[in-house]
């Protein structure tokens, strides 16, 4: 049973999240400001923190900074209405593991929470093998042709699998549509329709928590696609 800290100065939101997450079987601790959050984390064993940014006393950013300074490695997800790119970059750089903007889809919240927890608790339990390609929580096992995201298996069609495997093997590199086509079909890519892009979208929808904001399979618009090196 994992303990999750929910910290936000808006009591209604905290209560709502409590309801969602306790339904998933987690124990919930509540805090309404950064100082309270630090206090709770000191006193109890917390496995994940959901943190708002705009709070009185100590804001989310400073709270996370202090936590990381004290070598608290628990996963932290920012949950905030600050949705600018710069805010996201700041939050993730400070030491948060994920960033969710309000208003959020509760399902997305639950999915990301689970994913973060799995990553945290399943650290180092994967054997390093030649034909296993990983990035972040995405694991592609080329021996068994199995794909898991944070432990959860994902069902892909053969072509989808080939494409994903290809991209994960070359994680961090951007491939254009024609390059991916040629790699998978071994044919020159003239006059083909939009198969590649469609397949990519399918893959994305399957492995990503939020396909619109993908974590692994990213679109470089006008250039191509890549699997992020995490």
């Amino acid at each position: 049973m994992y303990s999750i800290l929910v910290c936000d100065d808006d009591k209604d939101i905290v209560d709502a999240i409590e309801i969602y997450l306790s339904q998933e079987g987690y124990q919930i601790y509540k805090a309404y400001s950064g100082l309270e959050a630090l206090d709770v984390i000191d006193k109890h064993e917390i496995h994940l923190a959901l943190m708002d940014i705009m709070m009185p006393d100590l804001d989310g950013i400073h709270t996370v900074m202090r936590l990381r300074e004290k070598n608290q490695t628990l996963p932290i997800i920012f949950l905030t209405a600050k949705s600018e790119d710069s805010d996201k970059v700041l939050g993730l750089n400070i030491g948060a593991d994920d960033y969710i903007t309000k208003p959020f889809n509760p399902l997305e919240l639950i999915a990301r929470t689970k994913s973060a927890l799995r990553r945290y608790t399943v650290l180092g339990s994967l054997p390093a093998a030649d034909n296993i390609y990983t990035t972040g929580g995405l694991v592609v096992n080329d021996d068994t042709k199995e794909v898991t995201v944070d432990g959860e298996p994902v069902k892909l069609t053969p072509i989808e699998y080939n494409m994903l495997c290809f991209l994960v093997k070359n994680k961090g590199r951007v491939f254009s549509i024609s390059e991916i086509y040629e790699a998978i079909w071994q044919e020159p890519s003239f006059g083909v329709d939009n198969i590649v892009a469609v397949h990519i979208r399918h893959i994305r929808e399957k492995i990503e928590i939020d396909p619109k904001n993908p974590k692994y399979l990213k679109v470089a618009w006008g250039i191509g696609y890549k699997i992020e090196r995490l």
């Binding site: 209604d12 939101i13 709502a16 969602y20 209405a81 949705s83 309000k102 208003p103 959020f104 509760p106």
Partner: peptide, 21 residues
Amino acid sequence: ITNVSHDIKTPLTSIINYVDL
């Protein structure tokens, strides 16, 4: 605009959450 939108998003979050609940 950014500040105002931020202030609107917060109560909106609660609305969406509780409607979902």
